[in-house]
Amino acid sequence: MSKRFDLLTIYGIVFLVFLYAPVLLLPVFSVNDATVAIFPLKGFTLKAYGQMVNNPALLAALKNSLVVAVGVSVVSTAFGLLAAMGVTRYKLPGQGPVMSVIMLPLVVPSIILAVALLVLVRQVFDIPLTLWTVAAGHILICVPFSMMVLMSRLEGFDRSLEEASADLGESGWMTFWRVTFPIAMPGIVASLLMCFTISLDEYVLAFFLSGLDQTLPIFLYGQLRFPQRLPMTLALGTTILIVSTIIVIFSEILRRRGVQSTKPTGL
């Protein structure tokens, strides 16, 4: 293949710069020794990171977010796996409409999901708003994502592998544990990581459905109003950015590698 630097390639590179430049400002200014994010840059400092780790409200919000994200990722992946298995291995009459409903939270503006859940929680059931209600909201948007990830993983899944297992003497449950589960594993881990990041970053549902306990994005949003706290906010943003980037890279590699290895190469 000849290496061509045509217009399209240049566009591709410019596009990446456009995609990343604004976000990369956060880490740059987070270590800048100034209280406003303006050029020229001043000296290098990690002061803001020091403020960050010494802020009790932030740490409390972080803990809340982690608890919610872990719970949400496990529960959503379980629901996603069941649904993905149901869809990929049976020809379901009425599958189209059912799938559309499950995938709806991907398109419906989250403010609608948020206010609808708020109405249900507060005015129909009169349940107090806690981290539980936040988690419920996050499960609603994570299940379709999880299902999509797992469906693409299970779609290439060869039914005859399970039949082979049954044929070799394993019952339904053992077949699941010895064949289905390990083969779906990369997809499951990818789904767990993805749901974890979604929940960790989600703001709108969390804002409407949380009570006194803040999650990290709510805390962050609150900080944005105070210009004097900008450095710490930048530091926090940078940290979130780095952590979620690492998780995403890891889960993407896992997901894509996983998809490739299902195809038998010998045939």
Partner: peptide, 15 residues
């Protein structure tokens, strides 16, 4: 069952 099968695509467990 006391039978075993060689599948058309062999169904070798990939993992």
């Amino acid at each position: 069952r006391p039978t075993n099968m060689v599948f058309q695509n062999y169904a070798i467990f990939p993992h």
